[in-house]
Amino acid sequence: MAMLHIVNKSPFERNTLKSCLGHALAGDSVLLIEDAVIGAVSGSSVVAELQQAINGNSISIYALGPDLTARGVKLERVLEGIQVVDYAGFVDLTVANEKTQSWL
């Protein structure tokens, strides 16, 4: 009964990612899309929160590749442990998770 959480806000502008991670349960997945991918960059100040989610809370974190590329973020700059997916991968995540919740 896992859930896919979709976050589209930069963590430097809104508290959306923080709020999402505060509610995601073990086994859930979080997909960063649109401006949210800014938080996926290695060395950013939200890295610790993301690593805690991945390693401490067993949450899988994904980032939408086309949104990273659009913003000039090279895929090798993405934090280790975050999996990059394309739109087809986004669709697959909505299939693999029984529920979807957008954090707008």
Binding site: N8, I33, E34, P66, Y87, F90, V91
Partner: peptide, 26 residues
């Protein structure tokens, strides 16, 4: 889809998602 075109990316993302879903036979 909750935002207008151009102002926000949501319509673009929804469109790309819809295309990808249809391509996969959904």
């Amino acid at each position: 889809v909750n935002e207008g075109p151009y102002q926000h990316q949501s319509s673009d993302t929804a469109l790309q998602f819809a295309r990808a879903a249809l391509e996969k036979g959904h």
